[in-house]
Design a protein around this nucleic acid. Structure first.
Lengths: 199, 199
DNA sequence: ATGCATGTTGAACGAGTGTTCAATAGCAAG
DNA sequence: CTTGCTATTGAACACTCGTTCAACATGCAT
């Protein structure tokens, strides 16, 4: 046990502080606002330490991307205490929750999307995370509506994600909350729609 | 008439070439890829000329923003040869047109959104353009469905924009085209829905 | 005590940045 | 031709950037 064991929740270790600082700067000022120096300043450490924990600036951004993707996946992770129907409904409503519609989180997502668009490497990570998210959502649909084919569940998940992405983006532009509420309802309608006629 | 009159469509004037170069670089590499030097290189002019036509790098980016906003507004500009119903339907389907779903255009929009999120000045320009776009869409709805109140038209426009933004964004992430098609249909359903019951 | 691994610092380097500006070219008016 | 205006060039400035690295601190094993 090192001397740091006393820090029960006092503050994160330096590496986490650096990552947190990078996320903060990225959400507030975009990628142009994230320099190794500004990250070091924000984290309260020396410049060299950033390069000690993260070889590259690229590695640092990659780590940030993974952090956000991880957070995204939690949104479609089922709560075992709920029924399949409630699990799905909860997941769909979560995207309008107070913690999610924070400017910080939405801004972060937006900047990471932009980053992925400009860089091949980030794009792959992003695409993989996107696929996992759709898969998670489709699984929730499949559990709540066992009669549906997997393909149909994926389709519904895709359609829902289109609306969800729209909500996230449009929230940043300041659309009224009533519209967000109606959009949430629309995702639920898609998710819980009766099985389509065959043929 | 100067000597340049001969250049009928040969090539744009230098100022336009500079703006075009900036748009191109922005869509391909994001804001980090847009330096005064790279813009000059891409436009085939000397470094100094960029600062001659645009005082700042900020002015240059602002001009780019205005260019794209102008382009966006055209999407909801009615074609006088069509009936109000056709005008609305055409506008809604245009967003899935080949020219719009180009990676270049979508990428541009994404980077500009990200930029607006990081900079107060750009944000205002963006918000104003967003409002004008919704207004244009609401007007199309109002013309096609004269019975609706203006507030109801604005609501429908807001809901449609959420889905449209979602389509634009999700196209970049590589969602399948069938989902885009269904989403287009969804915007039409919203636009042409029967008038809601009063009370 | 000595040695060693890990953590931490800030100076230094070369490359790239936005902006300024004296110099030049082209052309129309006098 | 001379004057004046606009367009165009590229060198130069001060600055920030990502990365490297020698130096120092800390704690643990020998």
């Amino acid at each position: 046990m090192g001397t740091n064991t006393v820090n029960s929740g006092e503050q994160l270790d330096r590496q986490s502080r650096i990552l947190e600082a990078a996320l903060d700067l990225l959400s507030r000022h975009g990628i142009s606002g994230v320099s190794m120096r500004s990250v070091a300043r924000e984290a309260g450490v020396a410049l060299g330490l950033v390069n000690y924990y993260y070889d590259d600036k690229t590695s640092l951004i990659r780590a940030a991307l993974h952090r956000v993707d991880e957070h995204d996946l939690l949104l479609v992770t089922p709560d075992p205490d709920l029924t399949p129907d409630e699990q799905l409904r909860t997941a769909l409503r979560r995207v309008a929750g107070a913690d999610l519609l924070t400017t910080k989180y939405l801004s972060l997502r937006l900047h990471l999307w932009a980053l992925a668009q400009a860089d091949e490497g980030y794009a792959e990570i992003n695409a993989a995370a996107f696929d996992r998210y759709i898969d998670g959502l489709a699984t929730l649909v499949a559990n709540a509506r066992p009669g549906l084919s997997w393909a149909e569940c994926r389709d519904r998940a895709s359609d829902i994600v289109v609306i969800q992405n729209g909500m996230w983006l449009t929230s940043l532009l300041g659309v009224d909350k009533a519209s967000i509420k109606r959009s949430i309802q629309r995702t639920e309608d898609i998710a819980f729609a009766p099985a389509p006629d065959a043929g």
